[in-house]
């Protein structure tokens, strides 16, 4: 190598180093288990702790890093449900969001960790415990996107996996929310006699609100604005769908047509206040 080549190589190396230093450049791969109080181990330990009466266990799963709305969905519901159910409330949040904090706290929603969570819930549940499960992501018919770029995760969660996870909670009373495009196509998988299932759209429709600037998806955003412990399920649902219709009309979108199904053992729940779920 000539001295000219060496000088050029050195200059290129210096420039690369300088850019990396200034730019903060590469993100270290995240620890899948999370950190501190919000690590998976800490959340599962809290979920297992006894409560004064039946526990209300919220499982929030943000499967994709493609929009902050997915993390926004599970965190706003977590905050509202915690205030609603008080000392009986437990939550387990898993999220594949793009890291914005200095240290990633929430565990990743990997297929292995999701299997572990539902297996553990099956072990620790009491007969009267209630579950509220939210899956939020992009979707296709019968599938949800599972993606986290820093962790090199790029796959899908199919109806079979979701069916297995929901079956592990049966026969406890369970409220499932799926917020994604085509999420109505997953309702058969999550249904059961003790399940109330909500989807953001019909099986062949898209739903809105999963852009890079959305703080929640349209469906969960509307649901969160309607949540009130004193309201009946039917009222919450009517408020939620009316709000979505209004937003979609303003955008001239033909309609996502959110869906709800009540299992055979929970018919009548639509007339009960949320506090009695």
């Amino acid at each position: 190598m000539t001295s000219l080549h060496r000088a050029a190589a050195l200059a290129a190396l210096s420039l690369t180093t300088a850019c990396a230093t200034l730019g903060g450049a590469t993100q270290a791969p995240p620890d899948p288990a999370g950190a501190g109080d919000r690590s998976l181990a800490a959340q599962l330990a809290r979920a297992a702790a006894p409560a004064p009466g039946p526990r209300y266990v919220f499982v929030g799963v943000a499967l994709s890093d493609d929009s902050p709305a997915f993390l926004g969905d599970i965190t706003i519901l977590d905050r509202m449900l915690e205030h609603q159910y008080g000392a009986r409330y437990r939550s387990i949040l898993l999220s594949n969001h793009e890291q914005v904090e200095a240290v990633r706290e929430l565990p990743l929603a990997t297929p292995e960790q999701l299997e572990a969570v539902f297996a553990r819930l099956r072990e620790i549940r009491g007969p009267e415990d209630r579950f509220i499960v939210v899956f939020t992501s992009h979707g296709r018919r019968g599938k949800l996107q599972l993606r986290q770029r820093d962790a090199r995760l790029q796959t899908t969660v199919d109806a079979g996996a979701i069916e297995r996870w929901m079956a592990s909670l049966a026969p406890n009373r369970t409220w499932v929310v799926i917020s994604s495009c085509y999420s109505g196509s997953l309702l058969d998988a999550v249904g059961g006699p003790n399940v109330v299932a909500m989807s953001a759209s019909e099986a062949d429709r898209m739903s809105l609100g999963c852009g890079t600037l959305n703080r929640t998806t349209f469906f969960v955003g509307a649901l969160a604005r309607s949540l009130d412990a004193a309201k009946r399920f039917a009222e919450v649902w009517a408020d939620t769908t009316a709000r979505i219709e209004r937003w979609e009309r303003e955008l001239k979108y033909p309609g996502s047509k959110p869906q709800i199904r009540y299992g055979a053992e929970v018919r009548g729940l639509e007339r009960a206040p949320l506090s009695e779920f």
Binding site: E98, T212, L213
Partner: peptide, 20 residues
């Protein structure tokens, strides 16, 4: 309500954090 994130992306602050 939003900040600059990686790769110049604007990242919203989440509703759960608004008044926490």
């Amino acid at each position: 309500l939003s900040r600059f994130g990686r790769n110049d992306k604007i990242t919203p602050v989440l509703d759960a954090e608004l008044l926490d």
